[in-house]
Design a protein around this nucleic acid. Structure first.
Lengths: 161, 161
DNA sequence: ACCTGACAATTTTTTATTTTTTTGCCAGAT
DNA sequence: ATCTGGCAAAAAAATAAAAAATTGTCAGGT
């Protein structure tokens, strides 16, 4: 149950290099959960998942620094997580990392995301069309009166940059 | 049915400015599907969705140029689309635009995306653990023989950058 | 009412340069 | 066997400057 893995095993299983393992250990990105009395690393299964996740994100084009920043941001957004790399479902693009958490999608660095609800907009416009009153003069178009129109503005705050 | 909208209506409904409407029209980002004999714009419902989508992406922090590049890439990836902005479900982060299409998630510019299958990796390691043979000497860890190990490497091609 | 064009202000992209981070390799220590 | 450290190469990030794109405002034309 409480099986642990040596560095060599972690390397073979996850595909990270020895150098990376050492550097990540040194810089605190992923540290072995256990150590032998002699100071040798013992990686838990949990650790392996984190290592493999980091490896995959890197292979997906994510830089190590962005990975660090993402983890920092995630642990701030979701403090209950001890090891985001092994506890979350991450989707990597070359530039950003998205996290799927409780049905929502976040960008790891900013935490802001939303799906564009096109269907909802369609309903809005259709409702508008139903409440229109045909203007007698114009033959085509000009279906709206001097609509106050403001009720249609997208209320979402514009977060420029 | 074939209701069309004037520029003013499109502005009121979608929230884009008159200048944007004109510039997008001039640069071909979103052009009205119809014109009056006098040369005035008539935007279809389809057009409105595209306008609203562009507006929302811009509000989400996406620049117009990235929007253009995304559309170009999308129409190359999915040639059957005439107007990606009104036919796809898009998710915007500050930096990239993702498209949901037939159950998959793409990054619009590169077309490359994949979700990290953590569950699958867990199964891999567990299978490895089951096929291990206990080494007689070591008390903790060192559970693996001199495993060839290569069968565990992630086969996914590393697309650096 | 709407379109177009022109000018200027703002924003975004591009490019080049410098700095930092990451990695490979090797040697010595535990 | 594994860890640590040092050094150099490679990759990535931060920075600054220049170029391009976008937008606001206004005026004239239809």
């Amino acid at each position: 149950m409480a099986t642990v893995f040596t560095s060599r095993q972690a390397i073979q299983i996850t595909g990270v290099t020895q150098r990376q393992l050492a550097y990540w250990r040194k810089t605190g990105l992923i540290t072995p959960s256990q150590r032998t009395p002699g100071g040798h690393s013992r990686y838990t299964f949990h650790d392996l998942i984190a290592l493999k996740t980091a490896k995959r994100l890197i292979d997906a084009g994510v830089s190590l620094q962005k990975l660090r920043n993402s983890i920092t941001a995630l642990t701030r957004t979701l403090p209950q997580l001890k090891q985001p790399l092994s506890e979350l479902s991450l989707l990597a693009t070359g530039d950003v990392i998205l996290v799927f958490h409780e049905g929502a999608v976040f960008e790891t660095l900013t935490g802001q995301e939303w799906i564009l609800p096109i269907a909802q907009f369609q309903r809005e416009v259709e409702r508008k069309q139903n409440t229109r009153r045909p203007s007698p003069s114009s033959g085509q178009g000009e279906l709206f009166p001097e609509t106050s129109g403001d009720d249609f503005q997208d209320g979402s705050a514009a977060n420029s940059k």
